[in-house]
Write a protein that binds this DNA or RNA. Structure first.
Length: 418
RNA sequence: GUGGGGGUAGCUCAGUUGGUUAGAGCUCCAGGUUGUGGCCCUGGUGGCCGCGGGUUCAAGUCCCGUCCCUCACCCCA
């Protein structure tokens, strides 16, 4: 086994028994997005590296150490997308989607790439779906986006969810807070971890979501961002909470919820599940009112989320096998003389929309029936010399074991009219 | 990048203080019905015991190295 190829670290194959669940989940997502009037967008797997550096932030972990970056033959620095909000906004600007209306609602479902050490719920190639509502600065839009992901998770049967929200303010109020936080932490600098000390210069807000207990104790006395939000930030945050309550969504406010992407303004949120292991975030999102302008578009407010499909599948747990419904026929070849007749019959059934199989291993009747059983076929059709001579075949209903004769001319209608 | 756990049949795993031809369950294949499945019975296929080196009369078992998987830290979906 050591000599054969295997899927690269952090990637995996989805085998037929798993793709069934994936399809079910994808169907729920597409249907719900449609019901909420979000249109699907699909963007290329790679983009200019600069797009992510500018939007996600040079200092973010994603850009500083997790990207699959390469140089193409034209010496362009390209990167396999590590997230999908920036590419979606790039496309929004490039195609001037704003002309279609004051509000543009987009969703995506695709694979992303981050070069991290894999663990439960974290892969190097992974899948996300997400929604972006572009054009509305108002809190009801934030609430709609949050209720959208909650609706999808509910439909998927994911339970034990926790919705956590916070506001990190708009750019100017956040700047004032950042200065204050730096003032507070600088005298305590030598009590901070190495990475936090570095972040004090590069991205002080990120220190807030440390998991180090000593640092958490220090931060307990740190200034609260709520005290620095301006009036509009505050009312936005309060209205968001009112709307969530109206939607019947339970949530918790966590002032340490900062998130690792630089483009957020005001609302940030996360939905977590305890059943995934350490990687408990199923969904993360927030408002990013400045991003489109940063990427060269007309200043346009927007809010969205991204959710991890692998994590959702883990959180949803095992689902009972949904057995195949409807008719499926196994044509049993009883004698060597009837091989081509059996193949032809199966083909004829398929042409008429009936799921059908026949034996290509030249196995015994017993083995063919075992195969029919393994395939969960609903019926077996026996085709041997007697049947060819008499012009009628034996049709056996596999659940009940009942068997009857059906004229060959009527076999198609026998299964299609059922 | 840093830790913990683990690599024996397709899958899940057992394998004693080193000791003959390395085991079980499930799966798969075949037979038990000269043309009839599931359940049951019988038999069979399938192993560089992750890889390399060392110790020993003898290594799946002990030692060293190495690769891979996995969980966790960091961070995130």
């Amino acid at each position: 086994m050591s000599r054969s190829f295997r899927a690269m670290k952090g990637t995996r194959d989805l085998l037929p028994n798993e793709t069934i669940r994936w399809r079910q989940l994808e169907t729920v997502i597409h249907d719900t997005m449609k019901a909420w009037s979000y249109g699907e967008i699909r963007t290329p797997v790679f983009e200019m590296t600069e797009l992510f550096a500018r939007s996600v932030g040079e200092e973010s972990d994603i850009v500083s150490k997790q990207m699959y970056t390469f140089t193409d033959q034209s010496k362009n620095s390209l990167t396999l997308r590590p997230e999908l909000t920036a590419p979606t906004m790039r496309a929004y600007i490039q195609h001037n989607l704003a002309r279609d209306g004051a509000l543009t609602k987009l969703y995506y479902m695709d694979t992303l790439f981050r070069q991290e050490r894999p663990q439960a719920g974290r892969m190097r190639q992974f899948s996300q779906f997400g929604a972006e509502a572009i054009g509305s600065p108002h809190p009801e839009q934030d609430a709609e986006v949050i209720s959208l992901i909650c609706a999808i998770l509910n439909k998927l049967g994911v339970i034990n969810l926790e919705v956590v929200i916070n506001s990190i303010g708009s750019a100017h109020s956040r700047d004032r807070y950042r200065d204050e936080l730096v003032n507070f932490l600088t005298p305590l600098k030598n009590q901070l971890s190495e990475t936090s000390q570095r972040r004090l210069d590069t991205n002080p807000l990120r220190i807030l979501d440390t998991s180090d207990e000593g640092e958490q104790a220090i931060l307990a006395d740190a200034p609260d961002i709520m005290e620095f939000l301006d009036g509009e930030d505050l009312s936005h945050f309060e209205e968001l909470q009112d709307h969530l309550t109206e939607f019947g969504i339970d949530f918790r406010r966590d002032k340490s919820l900062v998130r690792g992407l630089d483009y957020y303004t005001r609302t940030t949120f996360e939905i977590t599940s305890p059943n995934v292991g350490a990687q408990s975030a199923l969904c993360g999102g927030g408002r990013y009112d400045d991003l489109i302008a940063q990427l060269g578009g007309k200043p346009t407010p927007a809010v969205g989320f991204a959710a991890g499909i692998e994590r959702i599948l883990i959180a949803a747990g095992e689902h009972k096998e949904t057995s195949l419904e409807g008719v499926s026929v196994y044509v049993v070849t009883v004698s060597d003389n009837t091989r081509s007749a059996a193949a032809k019959l199966a083909d004829n059934l398929r042409q008429n929309g009936v799921t059908a199989s026949f034996d290509t291993l030249r196995r015994s009747v017993k083995a063919q029936l075992r195969e029919a059983n393994r395939l969960s076929s609903s019926h077996a059709v026996f085709l041997g010399d007697d049947e060819l001579n008499s012009g009628s075949v034996e049709v056996k209903e596999l659940d009940s074991g009942l068997q009857s004769k059906v004229a060959i001319e009527e076999i198609i209608s026998h299964f299609t009219i059922d």
